[in-house]
């Protein structure tokens, strides 16, 4: 775009600046010891799920637990309590999840405008995985999660995590499972700011209420 001259100038400056690096040194030669922990401490899988719940709650997410058959009733109850009339859902969300929900469903699609999304009350999604040590859910825009904006504009996000196969212990374990080519959103509690006299305020932009549903068993066939 800019003619390549600045590119060459910057690369030239970099190379001159690095005159002290022996020409025989390859990028991988400079040692990086990765002797940090892959996970902090030993835990059973159920303890890992417990830690996830604890850390999510510590950052003010609301956590619920159920098994796969109980999921539709729980979702219907939570949406009802919220008074959600319109709920946006990703195209690949299993149809049975919201079968009993007392709300109009709006399908994630490119023709939906941001303003229309702004009038939706809630969003329901799955996730790519969840990280126990940090209390994080990660979305990767998969079919049961949809485009990034549907979990951003509505004020209420219900996120379903399969405890059998979607909970990892640590950040390194998460990084090893995620695919960087997909757009990724790591969510650890609702948005927050401490910009005013360091007093924590939840919910500036993005959903002010995050509810995470930990589901045992496989709800994909619902």
């Amino acid at each position: 775009m800019n003619g390549g001259t600045s590119r060459e100038r910057i690369l030239g400056r970099v190379r001159r600046a690095l005159a002290d690096v022996p020409p025989s040194e390859h990028p991988g030669d400079h040692p990086v010891a990765r002797d940090y922990a892959v996970q902090h401490g030993e835990r059973t899988h159920s303890a890992t799920v417990g830690l996830l719940a604890e850390n999510l709650e510590d950052y003010r997410a609301r956590v619920h637990r159920t098994d796969a058959p109980g999921l539709p009733a729980l979702l219907a109850r939570l949406l009802g309590e919220r008074g959600a009339r319109r709920v946006v859902v990703p195209a690949g969300l299993p149809g049975g999840w919201l079968a009993g929900a007392p709300a109009e469903l709006v399908l994630d699609s490119p023709v939906l405008t941001d303003h229309e999304l702004d009038s939706v009350d809630s969003v329901v999604t799955g996730c790519a995985l969840a990280i126990a040590e940090t209390g994080t859910v990660v979305l990767d825009a998969g079919p049961d999660q949809g485009s990034r904006r549907i979990t951003l504009i509505p004020d209420h996000h219900l996120c379903v995590v399969r405890t059998d196969d979607q909970v990892v212990g640590s950040v390194p374990q998460a990084i090893r499972r995620l695919t960087p080519a997909r757009p990724l959103t790591w969510i650890s509690g609702p948005s927050a700011t401490s910009d005013i006299e360091l007093e924590r305020v939840e919910g500036v932009h993005g959903p002010r209420t995050l509810e995470v549903i930990l589901v045992a068993g496989d709800p994909r066939e619902l």
């Binding site: 757009p183 990724l184 790591w186 650890s188």
Partner: peptide, 25 residues
């Protein structure tokens, strides 16, 4: 970064994107 900066286990939002994605963003 999060522990050192805001003293959190993880900051509320981290976004990662690679070029452009059809129909998203």
């Amino acid at each position: 970064l999060p522990r050192s900066s805001t003293a959190e286990r993880m900051n509320p939002y981290t976004s990662m994107w690679t070029g452009i994605t059809d129909g998203d963003g």
